[in-house]
Write a protein that binds this DNA or RNA. Structure first.
Lengths: 356, 356
DNA sequence: TTGAAAGCGCTAACAA
DNA sequence: TTGTTAGCGCTTTCAA
């Protein structure tokens, strides 16, 4: 019977109980016993003993000794956002699938915080790091390089390590095409009716802007030289501000919005909160990010859903392959038409019994 | 100058370089040197050496030796949800404020997964665990007890440890009152116009149902004995199913919805995706959870926002106080009127420079 | 004011 | 097929 004494059992306890040496116990318990040619008999004895004693390995000790902790990190800017939280969800699943333990941390787009949290992860000897959405990629890369930490960039490209990114250009093109087509059903459009809000000078934004312009040029059959991009960074507050300014300047909102991310979309929500429903009654929105609630707002919202699951699969493969040259893999995102609520992680589980 | 050799510096490296012993270096580097009466001079020498060598402590080794890892866990069902992701955000902030490292894991409301992930956390010698939203609290509690792991229940009460929960009853009462008042502006209501969807037999659901009924009884001035609760568990799919059944049975949706959580709300979204906009044109919704996008849907949505920040502050205090008897602390949530987009974590950061 | 030495729980040569 | 031994990097008595 299991000893109920609070202290956790160690391989030494099992060594004494089983009569085998600590190293034999160790080998049995970490699975390397076949290779170490330990008899099935002793293995079984130790295994059942371990179960009886509720043995679980001390992963800090194992990590210290073997200099690999089994921890993998994911750095996101924030959790409170459908894109990054779904990324965290996929990351956790993918990590566990590989017997690794996920550690998700948030850098809050603050270069200081980003560096510090990554340094902390390194202090815990994480084996690898996935980097998604940082304010200062160079700073983080530098820290990784200094610690010789394998890492993969997610959703943003990097020079020092492999990257998995969405097809921002093509996604933006498709998204822009969709809102143009939708809006054109009602009335004639001119180039200044179609404006992009959000983004900055990062790679993703620039690609999306390029795709946005490509689609507009194709639609209008000309090089549109109007000012149709309002950069706001990844800040809801700034997006709201810029929208207010636009509204004041023009007396109305543009007919078609391309919104660079759900974070910027929250800026539009704030604008909506300060104006009546008429103000947004006729707009058509395309957002480069997916949020099920965003999909049902009182105007048509087309969304682009990056394939985070795929991105993480590829990311882990890249990590394992450890190519000599940094590789960039581009993953196709998916256009989500208005009024679409996709299934999520909670759909995979067994339903609870239902009473009325 | 710092050695660029990839291997990380250890206290022994600094010991050699400084001429002091490893134990002295250790004491200086972990801050216990004043107490150990080490001279300011040697301390400073070692400190500057450490900086030059870019020394960072190996936290696995420290943890192994001192049998406290500095890791705190948070178990949530899923990330992809505004409530739990804001909880993760607050948890991380609160943990770092205390010099601890957060590890957030998702149990996917799967009793097996919940146990396993908690066991893994324990294997990494986490110092404490916060438990929020599990399918099988008993299983998890048992694992914690077996490892003598201090833990705090969040958003659900538990017998074995202290709990911090929302005032579900009062919140539900306020929320129900708000939707009743709103809906009454248009037409006369009868008890069967006001229906609760979601939840199960867990404490939170039961309290919310009680608050819901209290508010209805107060409004209608009578004990309403109508069947006005449709339990669906915390499953979008099941919620959708039950809504479809309701719709088929009655030829229309109820006028007023009380939705037990944003997870159930996603079930309503799916229903909406399968029906035209007319079907939901006149409903009034109250949701026990806050989501900024949910707040702007094409019908009035009142929401209750649990005060996760406060819940976590209290949670950590409870952990530190370690009361002999489990304590239950109730935190007031906040009613959010329709069309409200609150500020979030990204608003605290410095804005990027903005170009047009 | 500092150092020597033991050991946290585990892994991995190397012997036997 | 198994055991012995020497650490991984750190903390912590205990002595000096």
């Amino acid at each position: 019977m299991a000893d109920v004494s609070s202290k956790k059992a160690t391989i030494y306890d099992l060594s004494v109980l089983s009569g085998a040496s600590a190293s034999t116990v160790s080998a049995v318990l970490n699975g390397s016993w076949r290779k170490r040619r330990i008899s099935e008999e002793t293995a079984n004895k130790i295994l059942s003993l371990a179960k009886a004693e509720r043995y679980t390995a001390n992963l800090q000790a194992r990590g210290l000794r073997s200099s690999k902790s089994g921890l993998v990190g994911l750095l996101v800017p924030v959790y409170e956002n459908r894109f990054f939280s779904s990324m965290a969800q996929a990351f956790e699943a993918e990590a566990r699938k590989r017997g690794l333990s996920p550690m998700v941390v948030s850098g809050r787009r603050d270069p200081e915080a980003e560096r510090r949290t990554v340094e902390t992860l390194i202090a815990y000897s994480i084996d690898a790091l996935f980097i998604a959405g940082v304010a200062n990629p160079d700073g983080v890369h530098q820290v990784c390089a200094g610690a010789a930490l394998p890492h993969v960039n997610l959703d943003l490209p990097g020079k020092l390590a492999s990257s998995v990114i969405s097809d921002n250009r093509r996604g933006a093109e498709v998204l822009t095409g969709a809102i143009l087509q939708h809006a054109a059903r009602g009335a004639n459009l001119s180039p200044e009716d179609v404006v992009l809000f959000g983004g900055h000078d990062d790679h993703a934004s620039l690609e999306r802007i390029a795709g946005f312009h490509a689609a507009k040029n194709a639609y209008f059959g000309q090089e549109c030289s109007v000012e149709d991009v309002e950069k706001t960074g990844y800040s809801p507050r700034m997006t709201e501000l810029v929208l207010e300014q636009f509204f004041e300047r023009n007396g109305q909102l543009p007919r078609c919005f391309f919104i660079n991310s759900s974070i910027n979309f929250e800026g539009l929500l704030r604008f909506m909160g300060r104006h009546d429903e008429e103000t947004v009654a006729n707009i058509v929105v395309g957002c480069f990010d997916y949020d099920p609630f965003g999909s049902f707002l009182p105007f048509p919202v087309y969304m682009i859903k990056p394939d985070v699951q795929k991105m993480l699969e590829v990311g882990f493969e890249l990590l394992e392959a450890a190519p000599t040259e940094p590789l960039v893999t581009i993953i196709e995102p998916r256009l989500i038409p208005p009024r679409t609520a996709l299934a999520g992680p909670l759909d995979d589980i067994s339903e609870l019994s239902v009473s009325s």
